[in-house]
């Protein structure tokens, strides 16, 4: 992930549920009580970059409690994980989070979830092969007519896979684009070969 990677920046802005462990004065407005100090035990949704900083701030000190503890965001909640276990293809990942895998990898770095990694890997590879299938079909052989105008469009989606393709997260979208570009340039070469 490079410094200027817009997806990584947006992933850092995803909210995760945190619980404050200390009373903090003058932060009450985070909990809609501007005049009161923020009480210990309050649950607030914080962006990932802030939550990460606060959670590891005092971790090296054995005496001090961390400022906040965090839970897994709803996108990685139990029901989603169970659904992914059952059938990865049926879960609309984009509805959970547009940066699902980015968020998940960040969360796994913070909390060691061995099982989650295995489930995510299975989800990713199964969905990837599905993505490749659609990328080859869309605008490809036998799927679209000889329409001129949208022949060169990059995301000329239509037909059965529309729902699935709309539910792709950003990683999968870039995969789709790569697979589709490969197929498309292959097709262009195949058509061009007869002209020379």
């Amino acid at each position: 992930m490079s410094y200027y990677d817009i997806d990584s920046i947006l992933t850092d802005a995803e909210k995760i549920p945190c619980t404050f462990q200390l009373d903090i004065p003058d932060l009450g407005y985070l909990d809609n009580t501007p005049t009161q100090p923020l009480k210990a035990g309050t649950k607030v949704n914080l962006p990932l970059w802030l939550a990460e900083m606060l959670a590891i701030a005092n971790a090296s000190d054995t005496e001090g409690k961390p400022f906040v503890t965090f839970d897994l965001p709803p996108a990685l909640g139990n029901d989603v994980v169970q659904a992914l276990k059952a059938d990865p293809r049926a879960v609309p990942l984009r509805d959970q989070s547009a940066h699902f895998y980015g968020l998940a990898t960040q969360m796994m770095e913070l909390s060691e979830e061995q099982e989650l990694a295995a489930i995510l890997r299975k989800t990713f590879v199964i969905r990837a092969s599905e993505v490749a299938l659609y990328a080859r079909k869309v605008g490809g052989v036998g799927h679209k007519g000889k329409g001129g105008a949208d022949e060169g469009s990059n995301l000329g989606v239509g037909g059965a896979g529309e729902d699935f393709l709309r539910a792709l997260d950003e990683w999968e979208r870039s995969l789709f684009r790569k697979a589709h570009d490969g197929t498309k340039s292959g097709k262009e070469w195949m058509e061009g070969i007869k002209k020379h």
């Binding site: 998940a104 796994m108 060691e112 061995q114 990837a128 790569k178 570009d181 490969g182 340039s185």
Partner: peptide, 28 residues
């Protein structure tokens, strides 16, 4: 050769994704 050219982007993307997902477990 032509199949490699066609699938290179996709295959590299998948392998990279698998690597990223497994990175934290691997580090541990």
């Amino acid at each position: 050769a032509m199949e490699l050219a066609e699938n290179r982007g996709f295959v590299l993307g998948v392998v990279d994704g698998v690597r990223k997902i497994g990175a934290s477990v691997e580090a541990a």
